[in-house]
Design a protein around this nucleic acid. Structure first.
Length: 434
RNA sequence: GCCCCGAUCGUCUAGCCCGGUUUAGGACACAGGCUUUUCAAGCCUGCAGCACGGGUUCAAAUCCCGUUCGGGGUACCA
């Protein structure tokens, strides 16, 4: 590519950033970065009724969270009305457009569609697409409220902003011939078009609210990492051509080309996203993991300030391989923060009630009292010795303790749990079981 | 209805453009196993697919046509 690539993401601020919108933004961003081009953000707020400032804000936030940063803009179409009017007037003067009066709505500017023309464009993803102008109808340029329509404002802006590649959803294919005609009428060259297929829900129909979570902010709240969503979204309709799936931002940028995007709609597969997330969770630093976990913990009412930071860092670290999304951390670490833990009935019956278990617990309790150092190493020595002396499998010692300390049969390694809880709490909880 | 786009395991996909190298590869999910202090992780194995029908060709997942099915559009929304 000789000319500098200029692409744009042009959301309309009528709601949060949708997963589909995020992927469109991402693909634009990737193309820009891949070719060292420019990524422009433009807010298409020409619908006076549905556009809100709040939506604009949340869309920006979601983009930034994902690391999709823009080089130019944001531009707001609502602030560029004088420009559209100028071009509308030009088309009116050239008799390419006319005023049209609607008894109910008022006076609009309408572009007269040329007849008998075939409009062909070479889509970067779909290849040649053909339309007959006779089937298209006239195009409203300026609505009777004085605001431009999408098709008009979009063309003017893309032309004026020297956009080289329009990468957008498949649902815009039918707008494309209209826009091409407008470029011609304006005497401007058409940019390249790349229409990416829409994202479907798990049942194959268009992704919508009834499929569950559809906004980027929801995934953020659930505890998905931005790099996981970034990676996942990049793969939804694109692949690098080999079997690589886990890629960081730079590698995706390096390998991404729009020509390799599939021309088939993809279903949003949350299980794969979750798997990717669990992968990334394993690799974040302890400090970052801690910072990420804190909001979930405090929101659940955990007494974070009651413990040294280092302890919570450790606690959270023990769970990085056991949770798939951050929000799972609260349920998993309940036993640590709460004084009165809830014992699972079955676990208690199976691992605490038997006489043998009671004996083990008593011995562990006594053994702990004699321990000089209370740490993973000394605990391991103690517990292994007890198991050996009683001729028990190690798990017959570990499980009763685990249940006594956490109320469940599931936890990180037993020595880790004990050290983390501290001698006092460990003894208290064991004693309660005797 | 009309116009447009699409069709490889349940899902995401590689292969398709440049037909033979494919017993159609990988990943998620699922099932089983190994490991083990429980769970998770990890490792191994298994399950499972070229929508259908016609061509073209010595040869088709790959090229062409049709059918079926899915999706999108058909606004003074974007």
């Amino acid at each position: 590519m000789i000319d500098k690539v200029r692409v744009r993401f042009a959301p309309s601020p009528t709601g949060y950033l949708h997963i589909g919108g995020a992927r469109t933004a991402l693909y634009n961003y990737l193309v820009a970065k891949h070719y060292q081009g420019v990524f422009i953000l433009r807010v298409e707020d020409t619908d006076q009724v549905r556009s809100t400032e709040e939506s604009t804000k949340s869309i920006f936030e979601s983009l930034q969270w994902l690391g999709i940063t823009w080089d130019e803009g944001p531009y707001y179409q609502s602030e560029r009305r004088h420009i559209y009017n100028e071009y509308a007037k030009k088309l009116l003067d050239e008799k390419k457009a006319v005023y049209q009066e609607d008894p109910a709505k008022g006076k609009a500017v309408v572009f007269k569609m040329p007849t008998g023309k075939q409009i062909v464009f070479n889509d970067l993803i779909h290849e040649a697409i053909k339309f007959e102008s006779d089937l298209l109808g006239d195009i409203v340029l300026v609505k009777s409220d004085g605001f431009p329509t999408y098709n008009f404002a979009c063309v003017i802006d893309d032309a004026l902003m020297n956009i080289t590649h329009i990468i957008r959803g498949d649902d815009h294919i039918s707008n494309t011939p209209k826009q091409i005609v407008l470029y011609e009428a304006l005497g401007r060259p058409s940019p390249q078009f790349a229409h990416i297929p829409l994202i479907m829900g798990e049942d194959g129909s268009r992704l919508s609210k009834r499929h569950g979570h559809t906004s980027v902010s929801e995934y953020r709240e659930l505890g998905y990492l931005p790099e996981a969503l970034f990676n996942f979204l990049s793969l939804l309709g694109w692949s690098p051509g080999d079997d690589t799936e886990i890629m960081d931002r730079d590698e995706i940028i390096k390998r991404f080309t729009i020509e390799r995007v599939k021309d088939k709609p993809a279903q949003f597969n949350i299980k794969k996203l979750t798997w990717l997330n669990s992968h990334y969770l394993k690799h974040v630093s302890r400090e970052r993991l801690y910072k990420l976990a804190i909001p979930y913990l405090s929101q659940a009412g955990c007494n974070i300030s009651g413990f040294p930071e280092e302890k919570i860092i450790k606690l959270v670290d023990f769970y990085r391989e056991r949770i798939r999304i951050l929000s799972e951390i609260t349920e998993a670490t309940k036993f640590f923060f709460e004084d009165k833990i809830i014992y699972q009935m079955e676990a208690r019956q199976k691992f605490i009630e038997p006489q043998e278990s009671k004996e083990v617990l008593q011995e562990v309790y006594d053994g702990i009292s004699t321990l000089q150092e209370f740490n993973e190493g000394s605990l391991e020595t103690l517990l292994r010795r007890i198991a050996e002396s009683k001729n028990l499998k190690f798990q017959d010692v570990a499980q009763p303790i685990r249940v006594a300390l956490t109320g469940t049969t599931v936890s990180p390694g037993i020595f880790e749990v004990m050290e983390l809880l501290g001698r006092q709490k460990v003894q208290e909880r064991i004693k309660q079981m005797l």
